[in-house]
Amino acid sequence: MLIPELPDYLTRLGGQEYVGLIIALFTFTAGISRPFSGKLTDTIGRVPVMAFGSVVCFLCGFLYPYLLTVWGFLMLRLIHGFSTGTKPTATAAYVADVVPVERRGEAMGALGLFTATGMSLGPAIGSWLADAYSMDALFHVSSVFALMSILILLRMPETLDNQQPFRLRLFKLKREEIFDRQATKPFFVLLLQSFSSGAVLTLAPALSSSLGITNKGLFFTVYTIASLVIRLLFRRSSDRYGRVPVLAISTAVLVAGMAVLTIAHTPVLFYTAAILFGMSWGMNSPTVQAWTADLSDEHTRGRAMATMYIALEAGIGIGAVLSGYLFNHLDLGMEASFALSAVLALVATLYLLWLWQKNRVAGVLQ
């Protein structure tokens, strides 16, 4: 709900040169909190960690209207990142706990289906609220939605056996608890893929305005609807054909989507890129989650999921900062960021094709 309107909001506060930090600060704290959320998910339980993420979302949405300086806003974005740093880690582990392994890809697709539904409705509703009412109304409504998620979590049973009570010493991490080597392959692929998300989240609202599109959330709505359709049509594809082949195809589609964005000088091309982008992530997200769960040990599943999400946050954060810098300081335009995103996605595609061939020779379905 918030993302499409935040660049203009920060600009009105006098912080135009910090637009790239809107996403970068959020993903920074999300990234550094991942190892802790992974450990806590595997010790105190899935539900408490999910609840913490929702509470942070609720509080930040409520506080945005009261912090009216650039630095106050940026500090709140930094804190807001803890929501994404905790809840998705525990949620993915929770889903992996409650479904059989042979339907894991389908289950992650179902989880992504609901996530994508919220993401498709959110930007359009958020822009409408900001235009029809005010930014304060947008912030408060987003806070109410977070509160509703907390109420749902109160009724969810815990799936972790041998829960431990929360202790401060759980925040002390060993080296192996920071990065799970079992998730190295998904980490590398997702890091390269997610750079494009950082670029899109940062630059798509500005590109919308330059094309005369007043609702800056429509790009996000179109790509999320495309993602929804793909999830419905191909929800069991990675369970049938393997994680790596599906990821290779979806990442190639991402290359095409970012390439179209580099030449998107009309609304038709702009929305074509949104459809390709959505199709790609509609296959990418559930497949890479299922792949990570496949490679992980059930006792350290939260840690593996946290490692995967570190790649997501790092890629988005780097993509956001670099895209904002290229656009604001080097006068290279948005095309340079979108082209770089396409190149990195191409590297991921080539790696997956190599891995696919390697697995076929070894007779492994992955």
Rank of each mutant, 00 (worst) to 15 (best):
H80K: 08
A336N: 04
V321R: 11
V347A: 14
V49K: 01
S149H: 04
L153I: 08
V321Y: 15
T307N: 13
F139L: 07
W291K: 06
T184G: 06
F166V: 04
A314F: 12
D136Q: 13
R77K: 11
E176M: 04
F338M: 05
P205S: 09
N162I: 04
I32T: 10
T27G: 08
L322Q: 05
T115G: 15
I150A: 06
I152D: 05
D180H: 06
P35G: 06
D136P: 00
L276P: 12
I318S: 12
W71K: 00
R301I: 04
A204K: 01
K174M: 06
S341R: 10
L2Q: 09
G302K: 11
N359G: 07
G72M: 11
P286N: 02
T221C: 08
P100V: 09
G278S: 05
S227I: 02
T41I: 09
A226W: 08
V222T: 08
L13C: 03
L346F: 15
D297A: 11
I178F: 11
T11A: 15
L350R: 10
L261T: 07
E177G: 13
G109L: 06
N359F: 06
L326T: 13
T287W: 06
T224Q: 09
P157W: 08
F234K: 00
I230C: 10
F195L: 09
E158L: 11
L346E: 00
G112K: 01
L340M: 13
A248V: 04
L192M: 01
G118E: 02
A51G: 01
L211R: 10
V55S: 08
A96Y: 07
L190M: 12
G282Q: 00
A274I: 08
A199Y: 02
Q289M: 10
L168M: 14
S143Q: 06
A339P: 14
M108P: 03
S210L: 14
G324F: 06
L352S: 12
I152W: 13
L352F: 10
R360I: 02
A306H: 06
Y94F: 15
